[in-house]
Simulated assay, not measured.
Amino acid sequence: MKKAVLAFALVAVVGTPSFAQSVGEKTGINSTLGIAPKTEDFIKEAAMSDMTEIEAAKIAQQKGNAEEKKFAEMMLADHTKTSTELKSMVPASLKAALPTALDDASQKKIAKLRDAKPENFASEYDSIQVSAHKDAVSLFERYANGGEDPKLKDWAGKTLPALKHHLEMAQALDKNRK
């Protein structure tokens, strides 16, 4: 099955690069193949990641344990900063790529956190943070290595160490809980 998916992805990428990258970002194929996202996809995914992190951090500040509240405070500050930086660098022709609200997948994650019982909150929050930061590190690495827009490519590279640090912290939260 994996070979069939990869074969399809390679045919799609070679056949119609701009279409394949958009589809690839939505399906995760780009990440699997290490392909840089299109600039529009990078902007959308990075902004959505920031928005989701900010909302999750607000919930964690209310429902989390002491470690999670401290982590959430950092997430709120760092992702508000990167969100502002990203918005200031988006080329005028791609302003429409900036999402104005959470997508369905992000809304479901936030709803899961809001609805989590106190005894289950740490489990939900910690695992969401690990997964979200793995995805963010992949997105930013791929764009920093092969993105189209020089300013955004440079910014992705400069932002990457902080995202890797967030991932390490999220993994430590998750490990400490177990």
Score class of each variant (00 low, 15 high):
M1E: 09
K2V: 08
K2C: 11
K3P: 08
A7L: 13
L10Y: 01
A12E: 09
V13F: 13
V13N: 11
V14P: 01
G15I: 06
T16F: 15
P17V: 08
P17Q: 01
S18Y: 14
F19L: 13
A20S: 05
V23K: 15
K26V: 02
K26I: 07
K26P: 10
T27F: 03
I29V: 04
S31N: 00
S31M: 02
S31R: 09
L33R: 10
G34T: 02
A36F: 10
D41T: 11
K44C: 07
M48H: 13
D50A: 12
M51V: 00
M51Q: 10
T52M: 13
A57E: 04
A57K: 14
K58G: 13
G64V: 05
N65S: 12
N65G: 14
A66W: 14
K70F: 06
E73W: 08
M74Q: 12
M74N: 12
M75N: 09
M75L: 12
L76G: 02
D78Q: 03
D78S: 04
D78T: 03
H79T: 00
K81M: 07
T84M: 12
E85C: 06
L86K: 15
S88C: 02
S88A: 01
S88F: 04
M89D: 00
V90K: 12
P91W: 10
A92H: 02
A92F: 12
S93P: 02
K95Q: 15
A96V: 05
A96F: 09
A96N: 14
T100P: 05
A101Y: 04
D104I: 02
Q107T: 03
K108H: 08
A111R: 08
K112C: 02
A116Y: 04
N120Y: 07
F121G: 04
E124V: 06
E124I: 06
Y125Q: 12
D126W: 06
I128E: 13
K134T: 02
A136M: 12
S138K: 14
S138R: 15
L139P: 04
L139E: 07
F140R: 04
F140G: 00
R142L: 00
R142Y: 06
A144V: 03
A144S: 03
N145V: 00
G146M: 06
G146K: 11
G147Q: 01
G147D: 10
P150F: 15
K153E: 14
W155F: 09
A156Y: 08
G157L: 05
P161Y: 14
L163M: 02
H165I: 04
H166S: 04
L167T: 00
L167N: 03
M169R: 07
A170I: 04
A170C: 05
Q171I: 02
N176G: 05
